[in-house]
Measured scan of single mutants.
Amino acid sequence: MQIFVKGLTGKTTTLEVEPSDTIENVKAKIQDKTGLPPDQQRLIFAGKQLEDGRTLSDYNIQKESTLHIVWR
């Protein structure tokens, strides 16, 4: 499925993911596209910070959802 990651600059990155992907895995995909290391990424969805060990489905993140990224 496709999801979007929007940064503070307003730039949006598209990712191809599975609902079973962990947040850690998603951060690795973001690094592949942007070069930003996972330890500098904070992902937010529906006002919650996403924890590395959880999956996208744990947070009810579905296709075409938009996550927000904040740099540490």
Results as ranks from 00 to 15, higher is better:
D58T: 04
K11P: 15
N25F: 10
D58K: 02
P38Q: 12
G47D: 06
G10E: 06
Y59E: 03
F4S: 04
G47M: 04
L56A: 02
P38V: 12
G53K: 13
F45W: 10
D58V: 03
P37G: 08
N25D: 12
A28H: 13
S65D: 13
M1W: 08
P38D: 04
E18K: 12
G53Y: 09
W71C: 07
V26D: 00
K33W: 11
Q41M: 15
F45Q: 02
G53H: 13
A46R: 11
R72V: 15
P37A: 11
N60Q: 09
K27E: 01
N60W: 04
G10S: 08
G7Y: 14
M1V: 05
L8D: 08
T14G: 05
P19R: 07
V26Q: 00
Q2T: 11
P38N: 08
S20F: 11
S57R: 10
I61W: 01
T13L: 13
S57C: 04
T22M: 07
T66S: 05
L50Y: 00
G7D: 15
T55I: 07
E51G: 04
V17N: 00
M1F: 15
L56D: 00
L43I: 09
G10A: 09
V5P: 01
L8C: 08
H68R: 08
Q2C: 06
D52M: 05
F45K: 02
Y59L: 04
V26T: 04
A46D: 13
D32F: 10
F45P: 00
G35E: 03
G47F: 05
I44E: 12
R72G: 12
Y59G: 01
T55K: 13
N60S: 08
D21L: 06
V17Y: 03
Q2S: 09
R54P: 04
Q41I: 15
E51N: 07
D52P: 07
L15A: 02
E16Y: 12
K27G: 01
F45D: 01
T34N: 04
V26S: 00
N25E: 15
P19K: 06
L43E: 00
V70E: 11
E16A: 08
A28T: 10
D21M: 10
T9P: 13
G7M: 12
F45R: 02
D21H: 05
W71S: 12
D21Y: 07
K48P: 01
L36R: 06
Q2D: 05
K27D: 00
W71F: 11
L50M: 06
F4M: 05
E51L: 09
F45C: 03
K11L: 14
L50H: 00
L8K: 10
S20A: 09
Q31L: 10
E51M: 09
T13F: 15
S65Y: 07
I23D: 00
K48F: 11
G47K: 04
Q31F: 15
K48I: 15
R72Y: 14
A28M: 14
I69L: 15
R42D: 15
N25M: 13
D32A: 12
Y59T: 01
L15T: 01
D52W: 03
S65G: 06
I23F: 02
A28C: 06
L8M: 11
Q62P: 07
S57Y: 09
Q49R: 09
R42F: 15
K11I: 14
R42P: 02
I44R: 05
P19T: 08
T9L: 13
I69G: 03
T13P: 03
L15Y: 08
T13K: 05
D58A: 06
F4K: 06
Y59N: 02
E16N: 11
I3C: 02
Q40P: 02
Q41V: 15
K6H: 10
G7E: 12
T12G: 06
Q40D: 07
I23R: 00
L36S: 04
I30F: 08
G10C: 06
I23M: 03
V5H: 01
I69P: 01
L15Q: 01
W71D: 08
Q40A: 08
I23G: 01
W71A: 14
K63Q: 15
M1G: 02
K63H: 15
G10I: 14
E51T: 06
T12F: 12
T22V: 04
A46C: 06
K63C: 05
A46T: 05
R42S: 14
F4Q: 05
T13H: 14
V26F: 03
L56H: 00
E16K: 09
L8G: 09
H68F: 12
Q31S: 13
S65R: 03
T22H: 05
T34D: 04
V70W: 10
T22Y: 08
Q2E: 09
S20K: 08
V17P: 00
G7Q: 09
E16G: 05
K11H: 13
G35D: 04
T9N: 14
I30G: 01
G47W: 05
N25Y: 11
L67V: 08
V5T: 03
D58Q: 07
M1S: 02
Q40M: 12
G7F: 15
I30L: 10
Q41T: 15
L56W: 01
L15C: 02
I23N: 01
D58H: 11
I69Y: 05
R54C: 06
L43V: 05
F4T: 05
Q49D: 15
